[in-house]
Design a protein around this nucleic acid. Sequence first.
RNA 1: GCCGGCUUAGCUCAGCUGGUAGAGCAUCUGAUUUGUAAUCAGAGGGUCGGGGGUUCGAGUCCCUCAGCCGGCACCA
Length: 645
Amino acid sequence: MIKVTLPDGSARELPQGATPLDLANDISKSLAKASMFAKVNGEEWDLTRPFEGDSEVALITRKDDEALEIVRHDTAHVLAQAVQDLFPGTQVTIGPAVEDGFYYDFAREEAFSTEDFEAIEKRMREIIDADLPFEREVWDRNDAIAKFEEMGEAYKAELIRDLPEDETITIYRQGEWFDLCRGPHLPSTGKIGKAFKLMKLAGAYWRGDHRNAQLQRIYGTAWLDDKQLKAHLHRLEEAEKRDHRRLGKQMELFHFQEEAQGQVFWHPAGWTLYRSVENYMRRRLEENGYVEIKTPQLMDRKFWEASGHWDKYRENMFISSIDQEEKILAVKPMNCPCHVQVFNQGQKSYRDLPLRMAEFGSCHRYEPSGSLHGLMRVRGFVQDDAHIFCTVDQITDEVTAFCELLKSVYEDFGFEEPRIKFSDRPDMRVGSDEVWDKAEAALKAAAEASGLDYEYNPGDGAFYGPKLDFVVKDAIGREWQTGTIQCDFNLPERLDAAYIGEDADKHRPVMLHRAILGSLERFLGVLLENYAGKLPLWLAPRQVIVATITSDADSYAEEVRSAMADAGIRVETDLRNEKINYKVREHSVGKVPVIAVVGRKEAEEGKVALRFLGEQGKTQEIMSLDDAIALLGERALAPDLKRLA
RNA sequence: GCCGGCUUAGCUCAGCUGGUAGAGCAUCUGAUUUGUAAUCAGAGGGUCGGGGGUUCGAGUCCCUCAGCCGGCACCA
């Protein structure tokens, strides 16, 4: 007999060779039915895998979050079997569970088509209906390699070869078909259910390296039941509606065209929004002790060579030359070398530090064509960039102050707290290891002093220093980096930045590269998606539409518009010969936050009827024009100005 | 950049196996003066992404280029 202990501390005796499933059945039939897999002494364990002696056991049921992961992983196995059944000669590679579903990467000469999905899904359902048991087998390493090679599964053989020597090689069978897999799996394919759907086809490099062969990836989504699946598909549809590219068109904010690939044509409404954000940011920077500068678009390549950008990013830099001159100018891909030029003018003293130098810096980068994505990834963009020149001792305070400012800005824009990543030295970098040790230690200490909750992202730092990145999510869960702060001991050296210390000697300052919004373009994209286009009053390009009910109210409407405009409200009239229903609908669809309805009654009484977006069905607020102006004027203030008021 | 898909009116999209293009909305014109999410009627609008080919004939088939979309890779 063996003794198993459950999480609540209770213990049971089971015969030798008993499995977690036996345990579950011993407790109750319903538990056995709901169980998906087990954790035995902390290790993930199939329900049908016998205990290996006395154990501590936790049964994971459908209610647990981890259950979904198993279902997805199992669905990936079923997908692989279905594909190999239908398309002989296709090699399998890897197929993990991911957020919302799973994928499987296949190697096959011919391309799959989404038209194949129907047949594949059908075969998958057959495999699930067959209720094939998942059977775990431990194999000898060399036998496994030989077997997979014999089967023509070169990728699988390579995977096994690269596993650590002491790793137990397990394969899982489902009927005739089997795959190398660590497990665990459900007891049988029937337990997976059918709440899955193949979603999309994509290319993906073997082991994520573009120098390797490209595989064909099939993405699917999988859930515990149809209701969850439907809900997920519905979420995707809703997310599509708040795609900033679609909103940009609907709200006439901006457009793109192929003659200026990756660059934005801002329309009047979009530019109004852009300026609201920029002006807000400018005030926040000023309030926080920054000075603002503006530097050239084109600069001699020698500065980029000195900084190291030319070596690392030459391929991604636009250059400019002119017939009359030999020299090559680079269109600036970033602002730091320019800021060092400003810093280097005149002699700086330790008393000047920390010097916080900001620029709404317009930059251009030749981003790979496949990476361009609406406003989120462009070739021409503006950063709310700044460089803080400071001493080593000042790093912690400056990082802390920066993080505080960033949090406050994000709050003003209505964002949840962003995810934070700490990235250290990359393989391709400048500077000695000693300098990197210093920079990483300083940044980490500062992050910890600021009480940041960050994840470690090894090897992903900038080539000149480690960084903290701030990441937000878009409408369909894709993540975009916005803010950043980077600790740099290298560029001051390479670009010869210096200040005179207390000791009257020359010293190198540390540069903290930092941005809060990152690229204004990207931030606006994220902002639009975050609000699904329904921007708060202070950001809305058109804040109020004065809509008339009959033409009798035209002159009064103009009076209202003019008074509101004088109070600084962005307001327009709609005097068209249309029904009020029509106007209300059109401006609501157009995401105008406030519609001021005026008819004969309002004109006679000097009032307006305010209707607020997103409050459909709620009664309008009727008030005097003066009260309306006071109310809207106050509500339309940017959050920082509201705090001052 | 790589893999796959898409590109038809200002916008959103139909157009089967090849027989010289269609809807809704928008626009314009007229009528209607209207009380909180689409008033009615009429009209105009397209070298079907560019180039090349097959064919008696191409929006439809083939090649090629570009852009966009979805991933991957990249992201100072």
